[in-house]
Amino acid sequence: MLTISNLHAGIEDKKILKGLNLEIKAGEVHAIMGPNGAGKSTLASVLAGRQDYEVTEGSVEFLGKELLDLAPEERAGEGLFLGFQYPVEIPGLSTTNFVKTAVNEIRKYRGQDPLDAVAFLKMMKEKMALMNIDQTLLSRSLNEGFSGGEKKRNEIFQMAMLDPKLAILDETDSGLDIDAIRIVSNGVNKLRSKDNAVLLITHYQRLLDYIVPDFVHVLYNGRIVKSGTKELALELEEKGYDFIKNEINEDEEVSIAEKH
């Protein structure tokens, strides 16, 4: 579904991603972990098409198309979804109005007719129940004055409404209490299927107790330096990121020594 090859990207003159490779197949859940500054959020931003970032090398193939050539809205149309680490507050725009526009613009992109009011309401009610969101929240301005938990639930609600092929969830767990993590995870788990995939970006192993990944990757210094299964996450939690750093540094010393 998604093939990232030798991706190099940065912001202004700062290089952040330095040759990242990753392959995600339909039906899989991948988790990317890593210390602060490793490039986790940059990866999410580059995939979703944030303009501030510049891709200098590499390619990203998504369902047979070159993702990097597409505008952010086209990526969404193709089935990509980014759950924001910090969902943006939009004054004066209700969540309902926003989601309705998004759903219908994506349908338009795919050559489908817009949903009529009845069908839209039905779908919305269903997903509201899934995410434990009530109507008053959706009538309010998008994310404005929402608590951290409400914002993140709203992200997953949007994901449920847009039914993406690949959902990238950027630190969806950060700052959430355990109840909110359960609701958010439950939502994600219910949306998992053999046809879609999830990329979880997280700093902590805790989220992975609730959304169990098929693969865990460690991102460090702009590259994936270690991949494994969920046990790798537990090891990281136990030993901290330093053990990865030491391992990498040792490897590099060995390779330098070998060259000589």
């Binding site: 979703a48 944030r50 969404a76 969902p87 004054p91």
Partner: peptide, 27 residues
């Protein structure tokens, strides 16, 4: 940031801009 948020949900730039401005004017 708001513009990118709306675009990332599949809303084309021109419509997204309008939505932000109408939102700004709404109060």
């Amino acid at each position: 940031e708001g513009l990118f948020y709306l675009q990332s949900r599949g809303i084309p730039e021109k419509i997204a801009k309008s939505m932000l401005l109408v939102g700004f004017a709404s109060d």
